[in-house]
Write a protein that binds this DNA or RNA. Structure first.
Length: 663
RNA sequence: GCCCGGGUAGCUCAGUGGUAGAGCAGCGCACUCGUAAUGCGCAGGUCAGGGGUUCAAAUCCCCUCUCGGGCUCCA
């Protein structure tokens, strides 16, 4: 029909609509549910507002609220409502940027008179935001010249700085994302006569689309992320397409909080951070120490099977070693300051184990027949982490790495990396983690030693083995360490969070700095290459990840206490002790309680301790040689289970994972 | 390191200038009980540490330590 435009839908079909039709017209034409959930429309790959007329033969798709792109629009729009509320409540506030982020959004402000937000302010702001939502204000797109933009945001230096950034065509995505057009214009969105915000858009049609949000917390954040610039007041919030999605999200956060290893570490008496020791320095209590021992023993066994040699090295060393290695040049800010002994001799706590293992390799002349040489150590290292970054067991100042250095020839490199990577993944799977992706970190811009050729070769080798694993591979440009690129294994835990676990680094530099050599089959001298690798990463961090992954409910083989025996009355205690001896004989870690409290109370305590099995024994059990089995997740306990039957079952369950060396 | 907010009994927390409190945990006594909290009693604190203001400070001010949330950086 004349006066119609033709649009191309995502499935390739075409659709005619009257000229002047908008994303909203299209959504309406598709389905009532699409109309209801539409937040924006994608036009030739670009997100547009729903009320802009669509061009002829555009490829279009309607973006609905529940999708990733839809949520981003929703959250970004909610950030504008937040800004409007704050500006109304504190006139004179300067506002900076308010993007959507994973799981939510934030907005940065500078309040008049250097005022800062408190938690109570969040309630007040949220109430104001709900008022704005109730008013169903439209989001109206405006285009302005640079000059108009500067005038519009008079008295708003952060907005003006963004506009000037656009004017200078900095080409920075972060800037154009805030201000829009790279063609000498800026765009803004107006909600009311008094509130307009610089923004590229798109936005939902009106504030009434934004019912399901929550302000989360306040924080400080530097303008432009630069610690030398103004510190702003940031408010974090989140928004979802439905009340259910929002409450689900909040529930997930609560679940994460319940699993927090710092909380569980105290509740289950696993470890603590005595303030007498200093920040980032942990002590492991008997139960945590036992879990840790099991982890380490298992790791040792696996390394033994995989052909590693076990070595040990001291915690401190003369400065010379770290001068040679380059650590003092490149890693000094991560090291504790030196202590001076013996007439000015400087000693450092070690931040890494590699130089020590190198000295072991270098201890005598090496033959190609000895390669690959794999030196393993649970090496305790100390790093001076800035005070603000320390976090539970995942970021500490003293930690033990399951560290090894593999010395091999260039010919052996790829093969070593391949078997290493499957070794890593097998080990992580044994600990119950099975959802991984790989990250490849390349040469850092500023801090790196070695030629570009070496870096390129090393990076390529890592890329090759990483892509052979048929796992998702993401790039981390410039994220390598100073001596080489690395692959890190990222694992997703039981509630979907990702953790950086193992790292594998390829290194041509340290062998050179230490002038490492081996004698080849050709009787010539050759330089080995080194692979640095830690599978747990640090034992402390891995421990923390396991605590959170399992929510403190360790599987049988890791559980510090596997079975607790509860006599019903005190005249059942001798039978309970007999059961306890049978459990010990079967190699199970058990404990027998006395009947000095009501049974319900004792059961409750064991449940809170997350013990895998509680065995209740009473008259019937004494008579029949049975036990009542109350498993950790059970709602109803089993009665009259023959002791032998339970022993067999529990012993099987408690066995270490047996995967064996990779064929 | 920087910003904001905390630190009161082992733990979770009340307590806004006038004699330090509760619940749980701990200890003692009684209760002897079949699957998530038996009762009574006792003990437990340099209110993180130091300095200051005040007749008087857990409370107000300053410094330090430490924890949390972020920012900037990493196993």
């Amino acid at each position: 029909m004349p006066g119609d435009i033709t649009l191309i839908l995502p499935d390739g079909n075409e659709r005619s609509l009257p000229e002047g039709s908008t994303g909203m017209t299209l959504a309406k034409a598709i389905a009532r549910s699409v109309e209801r959930d539409a937040v924006a429309v994608k036009v030739n790959g670009e997100l547009w507002d729903l009320n802009r007329p669509l061009p002829e033969r555009a490829k279009v798709s309607v973006i609905t609220a529940g999708t990733a792109e839809g949520l981003a629009v929703l959250r970004h729009s909610t950030a504008h409502v937040l800004a409007q509320a704050v500006l109304a409540l504190w006139p004179g506030t300067r506002f900076a940027i308010g993007p959507s982020i994973e799981d939510g959004f934030y907005y940065d402000f500078e309040l008049p008179g250097g005022r800062h937000f408190s938690d109570n302010d969040l309630e007040v702001i949220e109430a104001r935001m709900r008022q704005i939502v109730a008013e169903a204000q439209p989001f109206v797109r405006e285009e302005h010249s640079i000059e108009e933009g500067l005038a519009l945001f008079a008295g708003q230096p952060y907005k003006q700085e963004i506009i000037e950034g656009v004017a200078q065509r900095v080409g920075d995505e972060a800037i154009t994302a805030e201000a829009g057009g790279a063609d000498g214009t800026v765009t803004a969105y107006r909600n009311t006569d008094s509130f307009v915000d610089l923004c590229r858009g798109p936005h939902v049609p009106g504030t009434d689309r934004l019912a399901h949000f929550r302000l989360m917390r306040v924080a400080g954040a530097y303008w432009r992320g630069d610690e030398h610039r103004q510190q702003l007041q940031r408010i974090y919030g989140t928004a979802f397409e439905s009340e259910k999605a929002l409450t689900d999200h909040l529930r997930r956060l609560e679940e994460a909080e319940r699993r927090d290893h710092r909380r569980l570490g105290a509740e289950l008496d696993l470890f603590s951070f005595p303030s007498e020791l200093g920040s980032g320095l942990a002590v492991f209590h008997p139960k945590g120490g036992l879990v840790r021992k099991i982890m380490e023993d298992y790791s040792r066994r696996r390394h033994e099977e995989a052909g590693y040699d076990f070595v040990n090295s001291p915690h401190i060393t003369k400065a010379e070693l770290f001068e040679t290695s380059g650590h003092l040049e490149w890693f000094a800010e991560g090291m504790f300051p030196p202590m001076e002994l013996d007439e000015g001799q400087k000693y450092y706590l070690k931040p890494m184990n590699c130089p020590f293992h190198i000295l072991i390799f270098k201890g005598r002349q090496r033959s190609y027949r000895e390669l690959p040489m794999r030196l393993f150590e649970f090496g305790t290292v100390y790093r001076y982490e800035k005070s603000g970054v320390i976090h539970g067991l995942t970021r500490v100042r003293g930690m033990t790495q399951d560290d090894a250095h593999i010395f091999c020839s260039r010919d052996q490199m790829t093969g070593e990396l391949e078997s290493l990577l499957s070794f890593v993944l097998d080990l992580l799977r044994d600990f119950g983690l099975d959802d991984f992706y790989l990250e490849l970190s390349t040469k850092p811009e500023a801090k790196a030693v070695g030629s570009d050729e070496d870096w390129a070769e090393a990076t390529e080798a890592l890329r090759y083995v990483a892509s052979a694993m048929s796992l998702e591979l993401v790039m981390d440009e410039g994220g390598g360490s100073f001596y080489g690129p690395k692959i890190s294994v990222q694992a997703r835990d039981a509630i979907g969070r990702t953790w950086q676990m193992s790292t594998i680094q390829l290194d041509f530099q340290l062998p050179q700095r230490f002038a490492l050599e081996y004698v080849g089959a050709d009787n010539g001298r050759h330089r080995p290459i080194m692979i640095h690798r830690a599978l747990f990463g640090s034992v402390e961090r891995f421990f923390a990840v396991l605590v959170e992954h399992y929510g403190g409910a360790f599987p049988m083989w890791l559980a510090p206490l596997q079975v607790r025996v509860e006599p019903v009355r005190d005249d059942h205690e001798s039978y309970a002790a007999e059961v306890g001896r049978a459990l010990s004989a079967a190699g199970l870690r058990s404990e027998v309680e006395t009947a000095n409290e009501p049974l319900g109370a004792r059961i409750r305590r064991s449940k809170l301790d997350k013990i895998p099995y509680i065995l209740v024994v009473g008259d019937a059990d004494v008579a029949a040689g049975t036990v009542g089995v109350n498993g950790r997740g059970d709602t109803t306990p089993a009665r009259d289970v023959p002791l032998a039957e339970f022993l067999a079952r529990a012993a099987t369950e408690a066995m270490q994972p047996v995967r064996g060396p990779t064929a």
